[in-house]
Amino acid sequence: MAPRISILNEAPLADSESQSSIWRKIAIAFGGSLLLALAARISVPMLPVPMTMQTYAVLLLGRC
């Protein structure tokens, strides 16, 4: 018989700390995406090319 290859971790979550950690990571990813999307809508008029605040949002998210 060929060995079974598992792509996903089949072990169930053992405690509530692991599950809360997963929800925390999901919340951080969602919040970071929302911040990035909102920052892309803010335009700073500069000559000759306007700039968005998206650059600063990426720098801020990189620090987290």
Rank of each mutant, 00 (worst) to 15 (best):
Arg24Val: 05
Ala29Lys: 05
Met51Tyr: 09
Gly62Thr: 08
Ser43Val: 15
Pro50Met: 05
Leu60Phe: 15
Val44Asp: 03
Ser21Lys: 07
Ala2Ile: 04
Ser43Leu: 05
Glu10Asn: 12
Gly62Glu: 03
Phe30Val: 15
Cys64Val: 14
Ile42Leu: 09
Met1Pro: 05
Glu17Met: 05
Ile42Ser: 00
Met51Arg: 14
Pro48Leu: 12
Lys25Ser: 12
Pro3Tyr: 03
Ala29Tyr: 05
Pro45Thr: 04
Lys25Gly: 06
Ala37Gln: 07
Leu38Asn: 02
Glu10Asp: 10
Arg41Ala: 11
Val58Met: 11
Pro12Cys: 01
Ser21Gln: 10
Leu60Met: 12
Lys25Thr: 05
Tyr56Lys: 05
Arg41Gln: 11
Leu34Gln: 03
Ile5Phe: 07
Val49Ala: 13
Tyr56Gly: 03
Glu17Asn: 11
Thr55Tyr: 12
Gln54Val: 11
Arg24Asp: 10
Ser18Lys: 02
Ala37Asp: 03
Ala14Leu: 09
Val49Pro: 00
Ser43Pro: 00
Gly62Tyr: 06
Met53Asn: 00
Gly32Lys: 01
Ala27Trp: 05
Leu36Met: 06
Leu60Ala: 15
Leu59Gly: 14
Ala14Cys: 00
Leu61Ile: 13
Ser43Gln: 06
Ser33Thr: 11
Ala27Met: 09
Asn9Thr: 15
Ser33Arg: 03
Tyr56Cys: 02
Pro50Ala: 13
Pro3Arg: 04
Leu47Ser: 13
Gly32Thr: 00
Ser18Ala: 11
Ala2Leu: 09
Ala29Ile: 05
Trp23Met: 06
Ala39Met: 08
Ile28Ser: 06
Met46Gly: 06
Met46Lys: 13
Glu10Leu: 15
Arg4Gln: 10
Asn9Tyr: 05
Leu34Cys: 02
Val44Ser: 08
Val44His: 04
Met46Val: 15
Cys64Glu: 07
Ala39Gln: 03
Ile5Tyr: 09
Ala11Trp: 01
Gly62Leu: 14
Glu17Asp: 12
Trp23Ala: 12
Ile26Gln: 14
Ser21Cys: 04
Pro12Thr: 01
Ala57Val: 02
Pro48Asn: 10
Ala29Met: 08
Leu8Ser: 09
Arg4Ala: 13
Pro50Arg: 11
Cys64Met: 10
Ser6Tyr: 14
Leu61Tyr: 01
Phe30Ala: 15
Tyr56Thr: 09
Ala57Ser: 13
Gly62Val: 04
Ser21Val: 00
Ala2Glu: 06
Ile5Gln: 12
Ser21Met: 08
Glu10Thr: 10
Leu13Ala: 05
Ala2Arg: 07
Pro12Asp: 02
Gln54Ile: 10
Leu36Ala: 08
